[in-house]
Amino acid sequence: MAENFVLEVKNLKTYFHSDNGLLPAVDDVSFQLKPGETLGIVGESGSGKSVTSLSIMGLIPKPPGEVRGSIIYKGQDIVQASEKKLREIRGNEIAMIFQEPMTSLNPVFTIGNQMIEAIRLHTSLSKKEAHHKGIEMLKLVGIPRAEEIMGEYPHQLSGGMRQRVMIAMAMSLNPSILIADEPTTALDVTIQAQILDLMRNLKKDYNTSILLITHDLGVVAEMCQRVVVMYGGKVVEEGDVRTIFKEPKHPYTIGLIKSTPKIKENLERLYSIPGNVPSLNNMPKGCTFAPRCEQATEICRNQVPPLFSITGEHKSRCWLNEKDALDNREGA
């Protein structure tokens, strides 16, 4: 592969040791992030998408966690990297924003204190210079009265404002990758749109790659070029955003798209996928989605399907797609 990736996740396995044995939260996940691309990782709660992002940041507590496989950033495997090396990367090269802006900022330090800390951890700027940089970043993310906000505490700001602060903090060191874990889930719809707009603009200006973790397909459609759909700790479908929305192959993806409300249709009831995500200590033997799948057959219940390549980058982990994949191979 001659293609150039900012981040390459290969066979990532994140397990947690527990009294019930080893729990595979992320089970053999691989994907790549291209420069300047926004890649969406979609899935329900418990699908392993947040654990994937924390694994990349090296923020999985060990023990009880255990991370295997490789995460290659700029040609270096950071799974094996030392804590010191990871600290240099965190915040500086790979920055992260979280779902809960209300609780993600430390309540007992001022915004300025937290911005300056982030900047000075990775640069040799003086306090004063870092302060100016902080104000500049706050202005960039559209925060009014940036100078005053620097001296205020998180509880004095609204949720949307706090998420802007988080973004300002994350972008202040011009990272190559921004991991956004459900950045808009906790916000009002109008604020959601503003935050997404802001992220899109910053990405353009800074040429940052974004790993967008969400359960909201609307956000994916608006933001991403490519999508990875996760279920039960595994990648079940992967492809560019158009293909996934137009021709989803995996029954889970199809179910997800069907359960999103659409303006054109006027349904009495919205479709919902029956059942729940299986718990980690009780994973089905075959395809993890089989118990909830309306089209499941004998093979689905007994054998884990591989990730079938359908067209180009479009891959699906479903036995129903075996034929498509074979056809493809024959046609190719």
Partner: peptide, 15 residues
């Protein structure tokens, strides 16, 4: 266990 501790860790703050 708080979220802001995770944020600080993600910024690269030492233990």
């Amino acid at each position: 266990k708080a979220d802001y501790i995770r944020t600080a860790r993600a910024k690269g703050v030492a233990q």
